[in-house]
């Protein structure tokens, strides 16, 4: 499996609400690398790789993406929408989207013409940001209230191993787990691994709640993206692209897991960097750790620039680092043998 090509395929696909293109694509890949693989009713994918013991490590990456849902359609084909996830309204004027109606429709967020501009504009109320469907009065034939809208934008290569695209948050985590499953195929695993592609992370870490209850793991690690270095981001708030797996340290995380991940990375010369957070992590880990009677949980992240835009940027080598780290961690028996 080529990481870049699979990431690009997953990025171009959409998964939001009942739109499950990315989930279905990931399932088709994962089922070939796992002993069992299922799509659950709540839009999650669970792939099992059996090991020598029943001790179960759940690895979670979320398959959903940010977007919008249609709340109103006017008679000239303009849509009012609500946010699904953390959208930066400042980036919306003249931004292209795909409306998932009866068929896919190209749309564009209205931008205020210069002669009507009043100061810099207001970026607080999504209700003021209308989508032009280009369909005029025919919009209601194809689009209904409750339909979903996603960003449009094919992934592309930048220089070296850096790539740009939409929904790398968290298709980067998904592709990491798909590659990991391929790498583990044929290996003798001391523990059982469950690869879980969760839904509704962007709506407030919801899919991880039910999927972790179902999987009932002994230990869990969330694989997500985190802030990458950029000129307008302070160095203490971010990791650096190309400098490897960001290993999470936080009050809500299991210290033994964080330390073991860090130790394995150093012993095996796997590029890594520590990401220290003051409380929760803003990832699936926040829900995994409080599932049922509590689950020992870690986080490993891939540094990413321009998070929650259609121009997210990451370094493919960081995905490779995370994949290698997780493989070694599993082969050493997870935190069980820490």
């Amino acid at each position: 499996m080529d990481i870049k090509n699979t990431l690009f395929d997953l990025s171009a696909a959409c998964s939001l609400g009942n739109i499950t293109e990315a989930r279905d694509l990931a399932f088709d890949i994962l089922k070939d690398f796992t002993d069992e693989c299922e799509k659950t009713d709540n839009l999650t994918v669970i792939g099992t790789i059996k090991g020598e013991s029943d001790y179960t490590l759940m690895l979670a990456a979320h398959i959903d993406e940010i977007g919008f849902t249609v709340t109103d359609i006017d008679d000239k084909g303009f849509l009012t929408v609500a946010k699904c996830g953390g959208i930066d309204l400042r980036t919306l004027p003249a931004k292209r989207v795909t409306v998932h109606g009866k068929e896919k429709v190209a749309g564009v967020f209205c931008s205020t013409p210069p002669h009507l501009a009043e100061g810099e504009g207001s970026f607080e109320d999504i209700g003021k940001f209308k989508i032009d469907t280009l369909l005029g009065e025919k919009a209601t034939d194809i689009i209904a209230v409750g339909d979903f809208v996603t960003f449009e934008g094919a992934p592309c290569l930048l220089q070296g191993s850096l790539v740009c695209g939409k929904s790398f948050d968290d298709r980067a985590g998904v592709v990491t787990l798909l590659k990991l499953a391929e790498e583990l195929k044929g290996e003798r695993l001391p523990i059982t691994v469950k690869i879980v592609l969760t839904d509704m992370e962007e709506l407030g870490v919801r899919g991880a709640v039910t999927s972790c209850f179902k999987v009932n793991p002994d230990e869990a690690i969330a694989i997500d993206v985190s802030f990458g270095n950029a000129p307008d981001v302070s160095p203490e708030e971010c990791g650096k692209l190309g400098e490897g797996a960001m290993i999470g340290f936080a009050p809500v995380l299991d210290k033994a897991i964080s330390k073991k991940l860090d130790k394995i990375a150093r012993e095996n010369s796997i590029l890594c960097q520590k990401e220290v957070m003051g409380g929760r992590t803003g990832t699936d880990a926040d829900a995994l750790s409080v599932s049922r009677e509590g689950v020992r949980t870690g986080v490993v992240s891939i540094p990413l620039r321009n998070m929650h835009t259609d121009t997210e940027i990451l370094d493919i080598t960081d995905i490779e680092s995370v994949c290698e780290l997780l493989k070694k961690y599993i082969l050493e028996g997870g935190v069980l043998n820490a």
Partner: peptide, 26 residues
């Protein structure tokens, strides 16, 4: 307008792709 520049892809000299980045809203 700044609002239609931020978080867009650009092409320099017709052959080098770049992105006008923006600090994440988070």
């Amino acid at each position: 307008d700044t609002a239609v520049m931020i978080s867009r892809r650009v092409i320099i000299n017709g052959n080098v792709t770049g992105v006008i980045g923006l600090k994440p809203v988070h």
